[in-house]
Design a protein around this nucleic acid. Structure first.
Lengths: 200, 200
DNA sequence: AACGTATGCAAGCACTCGCTTGCATGACCG
DNA sequence: CGGTCATGCAAGCGAGTGCTTGCATACGTT
C-alpha cells in the first residue's frame, strides 16, 4: 500500500480514533457513520472493523480517550493567595471545558441512550471537582475562608458557573456580554467574596 | 374510524407533538424515527406526514413548543429581602430546568447539526437571565447589593450554577451530595454574600 | 526469494429510514 | 341520502447503514 502521503504514517489506529471523535462530536453516535469516519481518517471502511471489531467498540474507545483526565490541577497544597490561586485554576479549568465543549455536549445529550459513557469518578471534571473541594477545605482550615457554607455546594458553585459558561457561550452569545477572560475574573472575584476569602 | 379509546380523543395533533418531544428527548433527532413517534402517539405513520409534511417540520414544531417561555418570573419590582426573594426565584428556575433537562441536554448536544433550534433571545432561559440581571440592578440601585461586580457576570454565576446542577445532578450523582433543596439554599446564600446583599 | 501481515478495493447482504401511493372505512354535514 | 374529510392499512421505493467476504497488493522479516 501507499506509505501514506505524509512522511511518517502516524499511527493509523490513532488517526481513526481522532476522526471518530471529531465526527461523534459533530453528529453524535448515530450520525457518525463508519463510512464517514473512514473517509475522514483517510482509510478504508473495512479497516475500522479489522481494528476495532464494531462501530460501537470504536466509538467507545474514542470517547473514553477524548474524556480522559488531563492530569492533576494546579491548586497549591498550602494556600496563600486564594484569589490569585483560584483565578489560575479557573482559567485552566475553563480552557479544558471550552476545548472539549463539543464532545461534552454531545455526550451529555446522548447519555440516556448510552449511559456507558457516563463520566466516572475518575473523569476529568470529577477530579477537578474533588481538587477544588479539597482546596476550599484547606482554605477554611487556614482561616482564609471565613464565611459559613457547605463545601460541596461552594465547589459546585464555581464549577457550575465555569461549566455553564464554557458550554453555552458559543450558542447563546447574547447572554455572555463579557469576554471569557474578563468573565472568569468576575466569577472568581464573586466566588472569593462568597466564601469570605477576600484579602484585607 | 374509532372515536379513540378515551372519551374525548384529545387533539391528535397535540398527541403527536407530545410523542415526538418525548422520543426526541430520549433519542435525539436521528433516533426519533417516524415509525416510533407514530406508535407512541397511537397513530398511523402516514398521519404524521399528512399533518406536518415531514419529520423535520414535525420535530421543529414539537421542540419549539417544548422550549417555549413559561411565563414571567417572580422577582419583585421593589426588592426588600434579597435572600428570600432570590431563593424563591432560584427554586422555581431550577424546577423548570430540572423538568426539561432531558430535552435541553439533547438539544444542546445537537446544536451544531440543528442550529435552527438555538435558544432565541425570547427563550425561557434568556428571559430568566434578563429578569435576574434587572433585579440585581434594582438591588444595587436600592443600596442592597453593596459589593463591586459586573451585573452580567453576577447573573450568569447564579444562572450557571443552577443550570449545571439541573443538567448534571442525575448523571453525576457522586458530585452532588446535597439534596436539591438544600443545595439551592446554599447557592443562594453564597450568591447573596458574593454580591454583598447580606441583611444585617 | 519466501512468507506473514496489514491494508486496499469491490461487491454485496439484511436491515432501517423517510416518504409516497392507492384504497378502504368511518365520522360529520347538508 | 350523498359527499367530503380525516384516518387507517398495506405495500413499496430509493437511499443509507453496519458489517462481511474474497481477492489483490505492498511492506518487513527472515
Amino acid at each position: 500500500m501507499f506509505p501514506g502521503y505524509l512522511g511518517r504514517p502516524m499511527d493509523l489506529r490513532q488517526k481513526i480514533l481522532n476522526a471518530a471523535t471529531e465526527l461523534y462530536a459533530e453528529t453524535g453516535f448515530r450520525g457518525a457513520t463508519t463510512r464517514q469516519i473512514a473517509q475522514l481518517a483517510g482509510v478504508n471502511e473495512v479497516t475500522l472493523f479489522r481494528h476495532f471489531g464494531s462501530k460501537t467498540a470504536l466509538l467507545h474507545e474514542a470517547i473514553r480517550c477524548a474524556c480522559a483526565n488531563s492530569g492533576p490541577g494546579n491548586l497549591p497544597e498550602e494556600p496563600a493567595h486564594p484569589r490569585a490561586e483560584l483565578l489560575t485554576w479557573a482559567e485552566l479549568h475553563w480552557d479544558v471545558l471550552w476545548n472539549r465543549r463539543s464532545v461534552i455536549r454531545t455526550a451529555m445529550g446522548e447519555i440516556e441512550e448510552h449511559p456507558e459513557l457516563l463520566p466516572r469518578e475518575s473523569s476529568a471534571s470529577a477530579c477537578a471537582g474533588r481538587e477544588l473541594a479539597e482546596y476550599i477545605e484547606r482554605l477554611r482550615a487556614a482561616g482564609l475562608a471565613r464565611a459559613e457554607f457547605a463545601t460541596p455546594a461552594a465547589a459546585m458553585t464555581l464549577m457550575g458557573t465555569l461549566f455553564a459558561d464554557a458550554m453555552s457561550r458559543d450558542i447563546m452569545p447574547f447572554a455572555y456580554r463579557l469576554e471569557p477572560k474578563e468573565a472568569i475574573t468576575q466569577y472568581v472575584d464573586l466566588f472569593v467574596r462568597a466564601i469570605g476569602a477576600e484579602e484585607r
